[in-house]
Computed example of a mutant assay.
Amino acid sequence: MPPLRTLLAVPVSLALLAVAPVASTTPPTPAPAAATTSPALATAPATDADAATDAILPLLLTQGHAPAAALLTREESGSAGQPGTFEASSAVGPSVQTRTVSTHYAQAGQGIARADHFRAGSITKTFIATVVLQLAAEHRLSLDDTVDQHLPGLVRGAGNDGRTMTLRALLTHTSGLNDFTIDTKGVVPLSPLQAVRIALTHPPAGPGRYYYSNTDYVLLGMVIQQVTGDSYAAEAERRIIAPLGLTGTSFPGSRISLPSPHGRAYAADGTDVTELDPRVAGAAGELVSTLADLDRFYAALLGGELLPPRRLREMLDTRTAHGLYGMGLFPEKLSCGVTVWGHNGRINGSYVRTAATVDGRRVLTFRVNTTAIADPDLEPALLAAEFCPRTS
């Protein structure tokens, strides 16, 4: 499922960060509120797509029982100057095209503001995959390396074997490794090693078949540290966050509080879970970000600012995962036939969805401040309203 704009959420379960959403118990319903667009926050006139997404946003409150929801869209048009060229020896290539950017913000309910920091869940995986593909572009690793080449002897047990498991399999969720959050329910803080050991108590779930597992990306975080000598968080900061100026994005480690400003976050039963130990997710879902930063990141990634063309094509190649997943990104074909790319993210108290056109010129990011949305049809409806051509 996967130009900067905020997306609608699919229903999600309490199990952390899975791509396929599952409906779950939801907190009490607040009074319905209309979507609002502040002229001070919108830098361009409202479009038909803006009006359509604004109309759907309040339905998250009335049907999905989310306390509050918000979306931010970004659209790039026009250009000045010439595209830059990517240098494999550097993390991020020279500046690319200068574009005219318009944004549109809308929110429904109370408790969410445009500048708020929030937990982005599995959107972390796109950052991790980007770092791994940058290291591949620098010839510091190969996607066909086995896990054992970088983490010798770690993946053994219950039929799992790191000697036959490649980094490509981890990136595409075809390793067969069990998802450790099935055991922890996404609420138990763990070290990466503890998370992997939990997964290794279970037999593989069909190696070579697509099986979404947070354990895959915990292992990739460990590989990044083994190859570079720095943590995945430090590498993402150096290679992505700082160069793109993502001032609201961070890897909090074990810090349980959110940076200011932020609103509140609620579990499915209405419990306030704003304070949360990010080690429940680690490299699979630790990230904290903002609407604007996520729009900027996906626009830059799909626009070719972070990866050379070959590596970006690999990221978007879904053949290994049978059309369901690339590497840290997945496609979603909308009812009108348009395909968008991005990722969703859920962690206790937060659901986020980002989707973009394949060139990154149009992006939508959506969030709610609760773990689950009850109606599975709301997200594709919102995406269709944003990305499908409109007829007069």
Rank of each mutant, 00 (worst) to 15 (best):
R5P: 12
L8G: 14
V10R: 12
L16P: 00
V19A: 13
T29M: 15
T36N: 11
T36K: 11
S38F: 14
A40V: 11
L41R: 07
T43Y: 04
T47A: 07
T47P: 06
A49D: 09
A66R: 11
A66K: 11
R74Q: 13
E75D: 13
S77E: 13
G84P: 10
T85W: 09
S89V: 08
S90N: 15
A106K: 05
Q107R: 14
Q110N: 13
R119D: 10
K125P: 09
I128D: 07
Q134E: 03
E138G: 15
L143E: 11
P152D: 09
R156V: 04
A158I: 06
L170R: 03
T172H: 12
T174Y: 09
L177C: 04
T201D: 07
P203I: 12
P204W: 09
R209C: 02
Y212W: 01
S213W: 05
Y217V: 02
L220G: 04
L220P: 06
T228W: 08
Y232I: 00
L244W: 06
G245K: 00
G245H: 00
F251R: 00
G253I: 12
R255G: 06
P261N: 04
T271D: 13
T271K: 13
T274M: 08
G282T: 08
E286T: 07
V288F: 08
A292M: 04
R296I: 13
A300D: 04
L306H: 03
L307M: 11
R311W: 15
T318W: 10
A321N: 07
M327T: 05
F330M: 15
L334M: 06
S335C: 08
V340I: 13
H343Y: 03
N344F: 01
R346K: 11
V352R: 11
A355F: 01
N369G: 08
P380Q: 05
A381S: 15
A384H: 11
F387H: 05
S392K: 14
